[in-house]
């Protein structure tokens, strides 16, 4: 066999494997989405065909929007995710700047202390966290979730951002000092804009686990007013197990925002993972 033909065989094999995996990866999402727009009968008779004029139905979505307060859940998820990300990035970048920029006693130990949480999951402390939230009256508030997610996201954020802060040119910071910028101005006006790409990576890394978390909403904020989209859809589906239209519609409503966010940020996410791993 000559080289060109062997290469062709190789590339066919590669594409076959990748395509099968692609189908496997997308199949469940596809099945849920198409069936959510079909009548109950069509869902069971022809689960794998897309909706057509005969089988098209929005009855599932009607039930969901009538019975569950999905818009409200979505809003809660949005608030928790965005505010947590804001604090993770702000506090994380500040600490990273201090660790990267200043020599002080205990610098290395402080870095290690903050890095501890990368490997040890925060869930281990759930019992005490719940006690603490009960004692401070924060149970069933979004604040409780925001606090927990901020603490959870900080270790990795500090770790990644410290690496990037170290790359900010010393000459540049010194030029700022000579121009009379305070240390705070150097951080906000010189260092932060330069590590923006790294901040985006950290944001995307943290966004997904926060948005998708079920554990802490379930334990710390299960009330109707504070349910996140993840918990809300879980509870809703649990109640409507037998109403397949409603279940499929609820799943689709949970998938769509994540998928939309992913389409927007996928390049950032992939670049973040690949850049982080090179280190």
């Amino acid at each position: 066999m000559n080289k060109a033909r062997r290469n062709l065989a190789h590339s066919i094999a590669a594409h076959t494997l990748l395509l099968s995996y692609t189908i496997l990866a997308l199949f469940p999402v596809f099945v849920i989405l198409i069936n959510s727009f079909k009548t109950r009968k069509a869902i069971f008779r022809h689960p794998l065909t897309p909706p057509n004029p005969d089988s098209f139905s929005l009855v599932g979505y009607e039930t969901v929007l009538k019975q569950g307060d999905f818009f409200h859940y979505f809003q809660n998820s949005m608030i928790v995710t965005v505010v947590s990300l804001f604090f993770i990035l702000l506090f994380g970048a500040m600490a990273a700047f201090a660790l990267a920029e200043y020599r002080f006693r205990g610098n290395v130990w402080m870095g290690l202390y903050l890095a501890l949480g990368i490997m040890i999951p925060i869930r281990i402390g759930t019992v005490a966290i719940l006690q603490m939230m009960v004692a401070s009256g924060l149970v069933n508030t979004l604040t409780a979730l925001i606090l927990v997610y901020t603490a959870q996201g900080l270790p990795l954020a500090v770790f990644i951002l410290t690496e990037f802060m170290k790359q900010v040119s010393d000459d540049l910071k010194n030029a700022g000092r000579i121009d009379g910028l305070s240390e705070y101005a150097i951080f906000f006006r010189l260092a932060l804009p330069l590590v923006r790409p790294a901040m985006a990576t950290v944001a995307v890394f943290n966004m997904i686990p926060i948005w998708n978390d079920l554990w802490f909403p379930l334990i710390l904020a299960p009330s109707e007013a504070t349910k996140t989209l993840t918990l809300g859809s879980q509870v809703f589906i649990g109640q409507f197990v037998t109403n397949w239209n409603a279940v499929l519609a609820a799943l689709s409503l949970a998938i769509i925002p994540v998928l939309a966010l992913y389409v927007i940020f996928s390049r950032q996410l992939i670049r973040g993972i690949t850049a982080g791993a090179v280190k």
Binding site: S169, D171, L172, N174, A175, G176, I178, L190, P193, L194
Partner: peptide, 12 residues
């Protein structure tokens, strides 16, 4: 004082 740096250190 004023300083000129090796890497120029211009604010990007």
């Amino acid at each position: 004082i004023a300083m000129v740096f090796q890497t120029y250190a211009l604010y990007p």
